[in-house]
Simulated scan of single mutants.
Amino acid sequence: MTLLAHERYCAEIAHQVGLLRSVVTSGADLSATVPTCPDWSLEQLVRHTGGALRWVELLVRTRARENVRDEQVPSHGGPESQGDPAALDAWLAETGEAVVAALREAGPDAKVWGWAGDGDARFWARRMTHEVTVHRADAARTAGLPYEVAPEVAADALDERLYLVQWVQQHLSHRAYDELRAEEHRGRSIHLHATDAPAGLDAEWLVELTGRGIAWSRGHERATVALRGPLTSVMLAFYRRLPLDSPELEVIGERKLLEFWLERTSFG
């Protein structure tokens, strides 16, 4: 698995936080329900995202060797005032600067508690890149604003999603993920195909359901079902942020298998 450079993740977190701030200050209704996270308002989504960044900042800055509770994180919940875009923006700006500074100071190999895979700052730089990237999509949709993401970031978001599903299957007991091992799905597969990838970027994936867990790789292969479309749209659909019926997407083959996958790999 090839990751982006640590500094690339740090720069992307800063970039995505800046774009999320622009949603906050766009005049959008902070009380509006987020269509893709209907339990949250736009303000709650922003506070959740900023809180996650502040939690990671504390983990990385202190080189924590075990998890820390939310209540241990300074200003985890955001500003006291509700419905105040200026206060929310200032808190988010401070949050982004702090987490990026902590990650850069630590470097990729600093040992830090992590919930999946190797415990290092590299894991958290990548995880927070995609945490903000995807939740910024939620925010943009809520505010009716356009959404774009760099191709290499969208591709890495898909890699990370598959890595985490595979890791959870191998190391944790997770009922929904365990259902992907069902005998009836053994030998079936999912192909993701980005139709607009720039030259030099391999933007096709094969996900195989082996009965023991998933196996995945980048590349072009025939599969039980294929999801085709622009890279950003494929990424958003795979994160359940874009309906499969969206006009820019095409599902070829056994759609029910893709739906089965998406229903059981939803998180974040």
Rank of each mutant, 00 (worst) to 15 (best):
I13Q: 01
A14T: 10
Q16A: 15
R21P: 00
V23D: 02
V23E: 05
V24Q: 02
V24Y: 00
V24F: 02
G27D: 06
G27V: 08
D29K: 02
L30E: 01
A32M: 09
P38F: 00
D39N: 13
W40D: 03
S41I: 03
S41V: 04
S41L: 05
E43L: 11
Q44P: 06
V46E: 07
R47F: 08
G50D: 01
G51V: 09
A52V: 12
R54T: 05
W55L: 11
E57F: 03
L59P: 05
L59T: 07
R63M: 10
R63N: 10
R63F: 10
R63C: 11
R63L: 13
A64Y: 03
E66T: 13
N67L: 13
R69T: 14
E71L: 12
V73Q: 09
H76L: 13
G78D: 01
P79S: 06
P79F: 05
S81I: 14
S81W: 03
G83L: 10
G83I: 03
A86W: 01
L88F: 02
D89N: 12
D89E: 15
G96C: 08
V99F: 08
V100E: 00
A101N: 08
A102N: 04
L103V: 06
G107M: 08
A110F: 05
V112F: 04
W113Q: 05
G114M: 04
D120E: 14
A121E: 01
R122A: 15
F123K: 02
A125I: 07
